[in-house]
Amino acid sequence: MAIIDVQALSYSYPDSPKPNILDVNLTVNEGEFVLITGPSGCGKTTFCRCLNGLIPISYGGTFSGRVIVDGLLTTEHPVYEIAQHLGLVFQNPENELFCTTVEREVAFGPENLALPRNEVRSRVEEALGVVGISHLWDKSPEELSGGEQQKVAIAALLAMKPKVLVLDEPTANLDPLSARSVLNILAKLNTESGVTIILVEHRLEMIAHIADRCAVFDDGRLVLVGEPGEVLYSEAVERMGIGIPKAVQVAKRLALNSKLGKKPLSSWDLAEIIRGASDDPL
């Protein structure tokens, strides 16, 4: 069941003659984990904003095509309505968190929905628990580390109980350990809670093995979509400015793809294959 259906989407910002995204077609099924990547400035952020309706409703510009989220056409429903089906997490938590305590931050969304107070409270507790930051409920977002802030942002969106979570380079400003921690939460949300995840990310080595599908943007177009193994082992991807995981690079050099038909995406997968092959040399 397609929970997101993007048809022939093209968009240019109001003052820009050149389209930022051109003729993008993509369907995402419920429960999928889709990884989006591509060189800088290729339209990934714009695409994310098209998914929750900020584009074109808040941003204006020239918009053509259709974006359907959980049955709702984004051009015909206000952002606050789509926000109840699809949550968007941005890059820089400093510009996303604006309340004085974590609890209030996470409560903001449900409060906006005019839910009864005990419902707001239980959603806040649940969201904090799922993300593993219940102990931070009383802290000011200012005091938190980057990784903790992003977790608060994620919790704040989960409190809306969306079916889809879209994250635009959430680990861009985080150090590697925090990045991994945040990505692990996303993986858990997807496998344990069934939340559909659309993640724009550069750190492919940390997450490619979890994703169901990988979509590559280049210069505003969607140039490749497929399983991560297919995409990352393709020739096309080598020519773009994408950070191909080292395990993939090594595997390609060893031609494991052609010799063994294997496309490992992570170090330990690769190591296992190599150990297996060394017990049983080619």
Partner: peptide, 18 residues
């Protein structure tokens, strides 16, 4: 503003207060 809209700011005239 984007972040607020993404959390349904404006969804209801009578919002709850925790």
């Amino acid at each position: 503003a984007d972040a607020m809209e993404s959390r349904a700011f404006g969804a209801s005239k009578k919002r709850t207060s925790l």
